[in-house]
Amino acid sequence: MEHVVLSREESRAKREAHRRAKPPASLPLVYWPDDLESYTPTDHTREAYERAASWWRGLPERQALKDYVPVDREGYGQGLLLSGPYGTGKTTLAAAVLLSSWFNGRTKVMFVRFVDLLEANRPQQSYIRPDGLEDVSDIERAHDIVKGVRETDLLLLDDVGRGKASEFAAGVIEDVIRGRYLAGKPTIITSNLEPDEWKGRYGEGVADFLYQAFADIVYIGGPSLRGR
């Protein structure tokens, strides 16, 4: 899917039209409908906001194809990684980036919590109820998450690093990052892990691949904004 950046007037018209319609089904309503234009950075998030906005504005150029060949071979499919302590506004900013693409109207977007993606990748036999029957609704939801993560144009994978480290979790995150990058599909990730902490949790291969799969890795520090 082509990523485009509309003019300010076109973007505003699209935004107003979308606000009157339903938000993306996967997006928690707490983040609706604030995109990058309506986002108000704090002193601690201003640099991150500017870098995130720059990454978003560069999407059309990085995703451009000529005769089915990426014009920017290095940048094609590269995502955005926002890292930092809990409560510093990473997800709010990432959701604003996601909605900016949604409001531009030509991008399928998806918001998924990392813990939900791990749950969706559990073996199917784990969905057997105590009465011995399969929980069909949970199986269908898991299928929709896995399929959406693989196919959506722009994915926001939230809170990577939460939970216990395991080979299973490492395999899931590597499949997502590597698979989407090789498919030319950008991914936005938020994480409490700094880049040098990925090696200890998910392995050297995943940690090293971050610098190929992400056009920018942005740290957001400062005090927690929750409850303020």
Rank of each mutant, 00 (worst) to 15 (best):
H3T: 01
H3V: 05
S11M: 05
S11I: 00
S11H: 12
R12V: 04
A13H: 11
K14F: 00
R19N: 14
P28Q: 02
P28A: 02
E37V: 01
E50P: 00
R51V: 03
A52T: 00
A52N: 00
A53W: 07
S54K: 08
R57N: 05
L59Q: 09
E61H: 06
V69A: 13
D72C: 02
G75R: 10
G75K: 06
Y76H: 15
G77H: 06
T88F: 07
L93M: 06
L93Y: 09
A94Y: 01
S101F: 04
W102F: 15
R106M: 06
V109Q: 10
F111M: 10
R113D: 05
F114A: 12
N121A: 12
Q125F: 14
Y127T: 00
I128H: 04
E140H: 05
E140A: 01
D144E: 12
I145A: 03
G148E: 07
V149H: 08
D153S: 13
L157A: 02
L157D: 06
A169E: 05
A170E: 03
A170I: 08
G171T: 05
I177D: 12
R178N: 13
K185F: 06
N192I: 06
E197N: 09
Y202Q: 11
A207G: 11
Y211P: 14
I220M: 14
G222K: 14
P223L: 11
R228D: 11
